[in-house]
């Protein structure tokens, strides 16, 4: 990617009472991209984010945002960023608008500019109707929207979102994805955490897979999946004798679209490029060597496979994965 670097993290570590929450993280985030930190609960996503927004001091390493160090030059960094916390950090006794007015004062926005901007933001997150209600009566989704409006108020160059769609219904999730994309298209750099695989897959331009405080892989969802060695076709043989398996393997190896073949229970796992061509070719080959097939499964690599490949365990075990 040729865009300039917005965030540069080098050897970042944080220990709580001697227990390492994150360890030796290094990564670069480019201007104008949506960068995701994907990992299961307790992986260290929020800890990383907190260091970047200057509210937590790292134990080791450095991080800079547009060249400004988050510890040494915290005040400047704070002027560049917006933050949407993971918890609904809402004051139940204030109205939505009052939240934004308070922040406008804290960012020293000019009064009339602030008022127009607040109106725009309330509209953007479609909260105008509820703007003058006390937040006590807001639903989870409305609070989340208010959170996002608060994060956007300072007109940040980098927006940090901690689990922006956690616990939201499908429609609200899609809306928020849509805002996030719009913001990216306006040139804002977005850094978000998530433990939803589909969110990471569909929304993030690039992501870092993080597990137990360490980065296991970085790349675009597409590259990460491609890194697994192509789409998988799983064959189950009707008569899986070693000879039959060997014969079929030898024959399949000659096909140009086949990248790798590994034996699996009662059959083969074949990695291919372009399944639409590979599938008929494989079937034909099986026919030529007179190998009876009991089953054939097409397996498109998902981010979960990437996660398993890099961490040795599945994320899905712990999480329901909502699909929009």
């Amino acid at each position: 990617m040729s865009a300039p670097i917005a965030i540069d993290v080098k050897g970042l570590g944080k220990a709580y009472d001697g227990v390492k929450a994150i360890d030796n993280l290094s990564l670069s985030i480019y201007q104008g991209e949506i960068f995701g930190l994907l990992g299961p609960n307790g992986a260290g996503k929020s800890t990383t984010l907190r260091i970047l927004i200057t509210t937590l001091k790292p134990t080791t390493g450095t991080a800079t945002i547009f060249g400004r160090d988050v510890v040494q030059d915290a005040d400047t960094v704070r002027r560049l960023i917006g933050y949407v916390p993971q918890e609904r950090a809402i004051d139940r006794f204030l109205t939505g608008r009052e939240h934004l007015l308070l922040l406008a004062d804290l960012y020293h926005l000019k009064k009339d500019e602030a008022l127009t901007r607040i109106d725009q933001l309330l509209k953007l997150v479609s909260l105008e109707e509820h703007a003058d209600r006390v937040a006590k009566g807001y639903s989870g989704g409305m609070k989340r929207k208010l959170d996002i409006a608060c994060g956007l108020l300072p007109n940040p160059k980098v927006l940090f979102l901690d689990e922006p769609t956690l616990g939201l219904d499908v429609q609200s999730r899609l809306n928020i994805w849509e805002y996030v994309r719009q913001l990216r298209d306006q040139g804002i750099t977005i850094v978000m955490t998530t433990n939803y695989l589909d969110e990471a897959d569909q929304l993030c331009d690039r992501l870092a897979i993080i597990d137990r405080g360490q980065i296991r892989a970085i790349g675009s969802p597409k590259d990460l999946k491609a890194g697994l060695g192509g789409d998988g076709i799983w064959l189950t043989l009707g008569d899986p004798t070693p000879q039959a398996v060997e014969k079929l393997t030898a024959a399949l190896k000659t096909l140009p679209c086949v990248r790798a073949i590994t034996p699996r229970d009662r059959g083969l796992d074949i990695r291919v490029d372009g399944p639409e061509k590979a599938l008929p070719a494989i079937l034909e080959t099986a026919g030529t060597v007179e190998c009876r097939l009991d089953g054939i499964e097409y397996h498109r690599p998902r981010l979960d496979d990437v996660f398993v490949a890099h961490t040795g365990r599945s994320m899905k075990d712990e999480l329901p994965e909502p699909t929009p």
Binding site: T54, R79, I81, Y83, A89, L106, Y107
Partner: peptide, 13 residues
Amino acid sequence: ENGFLERLMATPI
């Protein structure tokens, strides 16, 4: 406890 303080602390006050 509810994170509001962190929100304030992430602003340049």
